[in-house]
Design a protein around this nucleic acid. Structure first.
Lengths: 350, 350
DNA sequence: GCCACGTTTGACAACCTTGTCGGATGAGTC
DNA sequence: GACTCATCCGACAAGGTTGTCAAACGTGGC
């Protein structure tokens, strides 16, 4: 083990280095390096001696030192910036990327931003200081221009879920507008003409797109345009519950609800249950969620496929890492309509 | 920018280094280092020149190189080995650790093991090759002895969710046995005497503990011991659904179910619904899950608090990082009983 | 015995950073 | 004017690794 360290100041046994291995095997450091990296040009006998020493010392290459010295500078780590590691959408995304990364022996460092632009930037900075090879980002702020410096420095970059602003780069996202449009069409097909929109924070681009889809569909089907039935900026279950209750208690309540997001859908369900209207008022939610088909009525949704987004984004990133420098691509993934019951309730007699 | 690189082999503009900053500011590398690290002993004028150069070059310290050279060798990264980044329990844990890590400017690299021992070891190896400062591990294999080498090399280590084997180290977990016991008591309190056990893979220590709790409670309440009512090794929703259906269709069906885990609970609910027995057969599940209080009947559970486990584990790890070398601590967190309806259904007349 | 050639091998520098140490500078004291 | 002392600064080495290069070695042909 290292003779070059002071056992007093070092509370722990030092980790073995190339030097230690070389000393034990009776060869030069470089030869050990060659064996570790599987380069050829080392005599079988020496390979054996080196591998024995490696095993004996439980040698672990220092990947950081290696990346520092290596020509391509790759660290084999990619960074993911997500909305909230604990929410099902983000975590499915993360998991899908992890599975793809696995095949390439890449590690993932990840962080949550919670709709905080500042946090997005500090996370990216932290990743950049660790010299990650690539970044997969669900952007939150209004401007991702600051990432151009990263790209110039050679970091590959793929956005997911939301379009970036101020930079041209690959992006993989769902057809938010199309999905929302389908939801409204679906409700209109059952005869609904008073369909409320329950939406997330308007600063979120996907929320904007979903509202646009709603709007678009209303026009196409000549549904009455009733601003009182448009509720925006619902970001938590409780927000959504309260807003839905208020809406349904109003003078001219809608006969159907379109909930533009997971938590909003759940909040709406809670409100419907509280008012005993779950079998009377139709509901279609954007985003599938666990248990949707065990509730009563079972909940119809427009499903995104976060795993697929993650997988596609990872593949995109890998192509970039492999040197693809063609023009940035935007991949839009179709949503799936899953009718389960709640979206097929006909309008109540008024 | 770096004059010391070949623009042909380097496809991208190199990242600025201390050297570049020093050249631009007209000082030595070491002085720049001092400014970057906030050491004192630099004249205000030079500080200004250096900071200007840093901004102008968009200099990013190379944390890896820094850690390599630095006395304490800290990389400010911790590794997490979890069951499945996409499942709510793991992701809540991850998120809680992330929040705690944030305050210390630590980054997290994480990976899923999916009950695969082999994968646990390769992940740990990968983390170790990156020289993470600490590890938080939900162990899966039968032996974590291989981690002693990591600990000796100075890596701090905290286990979560499950006790490790073959190594003594800090561990933070829920009171699995106690929680299961409480569940059975709770059902017995409503008059049930035929309570089925629906359990996860028997190789999983937590599943063993929960079964022990079940067994313990049956003894305490002198409930009839009916092995036909003990189903083990259910690991997916579908497994659980099929097993539950089989059980309830048998000659002597139980009047209550104890589901030892999330997915099993969900599978049981699906089976109950399919048979129209959800309001007849009582159910208590181990682990809370989203939507549990929107189902009909609402589902009673024994809840763990994964966020709390994560937070406590992170704090434990930080103490170790700060030099605490007292004896390993085991922290057992109490579970919470949440009665919501399904667990309070009285036994059906037989 | 000489040379040419291919294979093995190690010395050395370099990657980017920080710790150590000593030199330069300037102010203050006698 | 000579001294101490504190402050500021840079040269240098080192951390673990890999790329470059040249030396050493063994082989085969003349």
């Amino acid at each position: 083990m290292s003779q070059h360290s002071d056992p007093v100041t070092m509370p722990y046994r030092q980790r073995a280095t190339l030097r230690d291995v070389a000393a034990m095997a009776g060869v030069s450091i470089k030869t050990v390096s060659r064996v570790v990296n599987g380069e050829n040009g080392v005599a079988p006998a020496k390979v054996a001696a080196v591998t024995r020493a490696i095993r004996q010392l439980d040698y672990r290459p220092n990947v950081s030192a290696s990346a520092l010295r290596r020509a391509n500078r790759r660290t084999a780590v990619i960074g993911m910036v997500l909305e909230d590691l604990a929410n099902p959408f983000s975590s499915a995304l993360l998991r899908a990327v992890e599975d793809a990364a696995n095949e390439r022996q890449l590690l993932i460092v990840a962080g949550s931003v919670d709709e905080d632009q500042e946090r997005e930037r500090t996370l990216v900075r932290a990743f950049s200081e660790r010299r990650v090879d690539g970044l997969i980002i669900a952007p939150v702020g209004e401007d991702q221009g600051y990432l151009r410096a990263e790209v110039e420095a050679g970091t590959s970059l793929v956005f997911v879920d939301r379009l970036p602003q101020g930079i041209r780069a690959d992006c993989v996202l769902s057809d938010n507008e199309g999905g929302a449009r389908t939801a409204v069409h679906h409700l209109a097909d059952s005869g609904h003409r008073h369909i409320a929109y329950l939406g997330d924070l308007r600063i979120i681009p996907t929320a904007q797109q979903r509202f646009a889809g709603y709007q678009h569909a209303c026009l196409e089907r000549s549904l009455p345009w009733t601003p009182a039935n448009h509720v925006h900026d619902l970001h938590t279950v409780d927000d959504a519950t309260a807003a839905t209750e208020r809406l349904l208690r109003s003078g001219d309540p809608p006969t159907a609800l379109f909930a533009s997001q997971n938590l909003v859908t759940i909040g709406a369900i809670a409100a419907l249950q509280r008012l005993g209207l779950e079998d009377t008022v139709a509901l279609v939610g954007f985003d599938d969620f666990p248990m949707a088909d065990l509730l009563k009525p079972r909940v119809s949704v427009i499903a995104q496929d976060p795993s697929r987004i993650g997988r596609v984004a990872a593949e995109q990133l890998f192509q970039r890492l492999d040197g693809d420098d063609s023009a940035p691509r935007r991949t839009v993934l179709a949503t799936t309509t899953i009718p389960r019951g709640s979206g097929e309730i006909p309008p109540a007699r008024r």
